[in-house]
Every structure is written in C-alpha cells, then in structure tokens.
Write a protein that binds this DNA or RNA. Sequence first.
DNA 1: TCTACTACCACGTTTGAAGAGC
DNA 2: AGCTCTTCAAACGTGGTAGTAG
Length: 717
Amino acid sequence: MLNVEVYPSVTLGPQSVGDRCNREGEAPRLFTPTCDMMLVPPPVHTEPAAKLHKGEEVKMELENSALWKQFSSQGTEMIITKKGRRMFPGLRLKLSGLNPSFRYILLLDVVPVDNSRYRFQGGGWQAVGAAEARLPDRAFIHPDSPATGAHWQSRTISFHYAKLTNNMLDTQGHIILHSLHRYQPRIHVVEARDMLRWGGGQHTFVFPETQFITVTAYQNNKITELKINSNPFAKGFREDGMNSKRQRDARQKRKVVNLKETLDNVNCDSAEFLAQPASPSADLQALGLASLPPPPEPSCVFKADEASFQDVLTQEQSLDLGQSFIASEMSDISVAMNHGMQERQHEEEADRMIERSEAMTDQSYNSFPFPSALLPPQTSSSFSSLHAPDSSDTSDPQNSLSYPPLLSSGPNHPNTPALQQTSFTFPTPPLTDSSSSSSPQPLLSSSSTPSSTNYHIMAGAVSPQTPASFAAPPASCQSNLQICNDSQPHQLYLGEAVFHAGNLSGDQTSSAFTYANAPATNPDPPSAVTQPLIHQPPSLPYSHNPVSSCSYASVPPQTLPYPSLSPSPTLHLPNLTHQSNSHASTFPPCSFTSTLPHPSFQAASRLVRSSSFQPPACAAGAYLKACPGPLPLLLLLSSRCPPSPSSFDVSPRSGAAPPSLPVLPHASSDPLPRLPIIPAASGPSLIPEYPLPASVPVNPAETAPPDCNPREPPENV
DNA sequence: TCTACTACCACGTTTGAAGAGC
DNA sequence: AGCTCTTCAAACGTGGTAGTAG
C-alpha cells in the first residue's frame, strides 16, 4: 500500500508513472504503489552547514543553455495539459562543487515569476490581469535522489521526466501550474548527508533563461517552430516530416479528392450500387466518411497512395535554424543515431546546425532589444569570464556568450562587504528587487542558517534573452518596486557575491552565485531606476519580485528549531543501491538551515505567522520513505506549516511504523492553504483523491521493489 | 463572438518482447 | 543453453485541429 504522509507544507506525491527511476544503465524501476513514501519533518541540524561547504562552492550549469536562450529570446511557452506534459527544452544540468561522498537530493520546483496573468497580443505577451490563486507548490525530486555528490557530478542531470499540468486535481504528482502564467523553474540541491536525513547545506539555482509561460496551445508560431525543430518527438511536424503542414494539407486534399472520387465512384457504379447492396466501405464513404480507407481497386477510384508518395518525394531537405538546437540536445537525439551512415549524416547536420545556431544565436541575442541601460558594463566577452568554460560542448554556441550572474550572496551575511555596483552589474530586471534576496522565504526550510542555503542566480541573465514581448509587470509591480527602494538590498547580495564568488574575476569557471539570505532590512534594488520595467521580464517572486520581496523584508530570517522530532528521523531513500558507498544512517540529527525563498504571493501574510512557522519542518526536512530505488517522488512545497509538528510520525527506516502526518486540505485562496496529499500515480486506489483527509497508513509489507517504466527515454546519453 | 481548453489525430521515438541465428 | 542481433508492436511524446465551454 502506498503510503504518503503529507506534512502540511510538504506534500509528497508520487511522480507520474513516467517519472522513471533508473538512469544510465540502472535497471529500470517504476514507481509503483508498492513504494512507500512519506514525508517527515526535517531533521535537526546539528552541524553548521557552513562547515560542510567550507571552501566549496556548489556550481550548477545549464547544459542546454543555448537552447533555452533561444526559446527565451522568443518567449518560452510550455504546454500544459490535463494529463501532464513534459517540459521542452528540458533542464539539463551539470553540478560541481559537491562533496563526492555526501548525498544530495535534487529537487525541481516551478514558481510564478509574478502575480500576473498573460495574454499573447500583438506578437508578444502582455500582462492582462491578476494571476490566479497560487497553487500548491509541488516539487519534483530527481529520481536519482538521494545520490552522492560524485554521482551527481559524474553525469548530466536531467529533469525532463517532470511533467506540467493544469489539472488542479492531478493525482499523478505532476507540477500543477496555471495556464497563461509565467513561471520560473528552480533547482534545489539539498544535502542529505547520510541518505536518511535531509539537512546540511542547501543550494537553490535559478536560470533566468528557463522562465516560461504556460499555455494550453502554443501562441507564438516561432516557439512552435523552435519546438518542432528541436524536439525529436515532434519530428513529424517538420517541413520534411509526414505530419508537416504541407503533408497535412496534402492529406486533407487527398481526403477531399478521395471523397469526391468515392462519390464519383458511387455515381458511376450507381447502377450496380442500386442493383445490389453496397459494400460496407462504399457505403460508409458514400456517407462522407472519407477518412476510411478507399474501396479496394475500384476502376475509377483515386489512388491516394500514389499522390502520397509524390508528396513524399517532393519533400525538401530543410534545415531550419531551430534544428540547430538539436545539437544542444544531442545527447537525447543521438541515441537513435547508432548507425554509421546515420551518424555521419547526423554529425554533418549537427555541424551545420551549430554553424547556423551560432549565427542565429548571435543574431538573436545581439539584436535582442535589451535596454542598454540594463546591460552590464561587461560585454558578452566579459560574461563568458564568469561562465565555466566547456570546450567540449561544441554544440552550445552560447557558451562563449555567457551571462553574468545576477546576484551573488550568502544567506545571513548582511555584513558581507558590499560589492561595488559598478563592478557588478545587474543585467536583468529580477535584480531590480532584492528584497527577496534579503529574506528569501524557505521553500524547503525556513530556518536560515548562515551558508546553509545558497541561492544561485545562474549566469544566464533573464533580460538579455528575455524577449521584449514579455510584458512588463503591471503598475502594481512598479509601486511595489518603489516600496522596495527604500532599502539597499543589492549591496547585500552584491556583497555576498564578493563573499562567495570573490574571485569571480579570477575564477572563470564559476557559474553559481550564492544568493544572500538578506536580513529583514530590505535592500534597495539598484536596477529599479536603471531598468525600465517595460523591457524587463517580471521579477522572480522570491528573489526579484517586488511584491514578495518587500513582504519578505518584514520578516527577518528565523531559525526555528524543528519541533520534537521523533527519535531518529529517517529518510527512506532506497535508491541507495546504485550508489557506491553507504553512510552511517545514524547521523546525529541536524537542523535544516536552508532558506529557500518563497514565491511572492504567499509570502507576507504567511510569514507573519512566524510564531508558528517552522520552515524546516515544512519542507526541506521532509523525510522520504520511498521505493528502494531512485527516488521517484514528488513534493508539495508550501510555506504552510503543520499545526502540530509533534504530530509527525517518523518511522524508522524499516518502515515498521507508518507515519501519521496531518493532511490538510488545501484551498489556494486560503491565505494559509493546506496542501493536499498527492496520491500515488500508480495507486489511485491507494491514495484517496484530492483532497485527502488525513495521513494514509503505510503498509510496510507492500514495499515491493520499484518498477520503473522503461518507456522513458534515456536521460543521459 | 471571442478566448481558452479539451479530446482526438497522425506521426515519430523509444523500448522491451519475441524470434532467429550463432 | 546462452548470447547477440534483428524485428516488431505497444506505449508514449509531439503539435495540429476541430469541437466545446464560459
């Protein structure tokens, strides 16, 4: 029996069946109802995270950054469907700076960028109103989690298994989003030092170029073209594909001709038709069901096959610019290119793609109507200095055109020497609001411990690649922004930039910049004046969104001890089999000190409840009791905290004691919504439909090995 | 009437099962 | 008997499109 314990702010849900567990040669494991999962409060942090990462700097690179930027330049759109849709491009990441022997959990969540609803008008996206009520924050835990730092650093990390849905009643564990809203994916690296406990340091990475607007149908034709040309699954829609517009038109034409011929056939055989019962097919077609196969070889029947063949023969060998980005996704695509002939052909194509890609990206970004005032003093070349060089990634023409880090800081380092703004420019609008940085709300945990949580705004600044069509935030944002101006936030995270990336100029490989956990004082967005909103994409909720950031500013970082956790909080992450070394599972409890920022909309009001707000318990400290394989589970994250932390039932690793966490129904409109349990994807009968009443008992006996769906394409090739 | 959404379609990709060959 | 390779079908991912609901 699948068991899902939901901590109010951390709802664990099974990932969709599509969320395969295995990776890279591992036996496929499918998340099944037999996998027990539960979330438990975060462990008590006993060792300062700062020690754990002393001298280290966790870095993350977006491997397919060029592709993302290409989309971003047009205004990335992501289809969301009721059943869930994968993201394309996917998040392909490279991690470094981790302790090879420590275990980490990687999470992906998607947070609204602003509080606006968008509409595609006049060839661009315009904010047209207030956003829908905030949905429960679901986080997608990478199936490999927890894995050692060596594991994460040895391969490309892909989150393409994550699916987006607009079904608020989704039971598959997909990430629920509103359509026509703007979102920003975030990747969280949470240290799970002994694979049984979450704790230690936490890092949040944000790649501004991965912002997207959710849609149920593509609005921007350019995005459609890019998707078709970049996504192998959409090959059929390419110019030379059988599902291209030309081919579809041809099919449509054939259908019409077919129908006409059929009708003619009926006419010419009318005598016979009238004389004897018509065949079923002729009968159907005569009724207009032209889609049915034509009658076999009637003398005057149009031969559709011939026409079709002709159409195929006339297909052109088009190589759209967008196809160039296949190169950046080559690892995904190359799987099918195993044969020499194909491979050579592909390589040749890839080379041409790269060439065109370079030309295109240059054009795209160089010509991007990014306000010069927003651009940092550095030129593209200077940006590259901040980017980790990757000579091997020849498919990524953007590597040479890296973007400077937006922010850089460490949590709770208000006294960190401020970085001169002149030497550290903020090319993107998100930077305009630093309040979020000042007091980022915890996503997984709220107790902010110095250096426990780092926020990284990745080098790819939003603005340069964000299309001007991305409407500026509503006037309300501006007002909020102004409100935030009364502080000097940038100095804070800028200073942190120096603190954590003080050798930026010298460390060319640094791609991660810690995000300061600013104090209550709201920093002053430096870019507020220099960056016209009209050309700036909405700010990130936690780090840039004026509204949220301002609200956060009123709430100083809190270090709330996790309430009476059960003896030995256990993180059941059976996925350890594929990991080499095992660590003692009896690590002393450690307090979770990460301070993930929280999206704007729910910030202020909730945080005010500081007395009962216990961030760590809410999310980061979630304990997982999952199937014995890569962790295919999904979290619901929220700032909501359980009414009674003591109610946590931390079951031992053996899984003997089913946890009994309070399950709270969630209403997005509720200022303090409670998150529903996300039933298991494969075990609908096991998990009640949303909303769920209370905790679901765990049946330890039904912890069969996970059976990952083999249908998932290889993630890392 | 317009907009957004859903269900379905056709095509391509991926994967594992089944069979053949060695 | 065991291994490798090939073939095939099913599942799934994809954008397009017609229909529907508000």
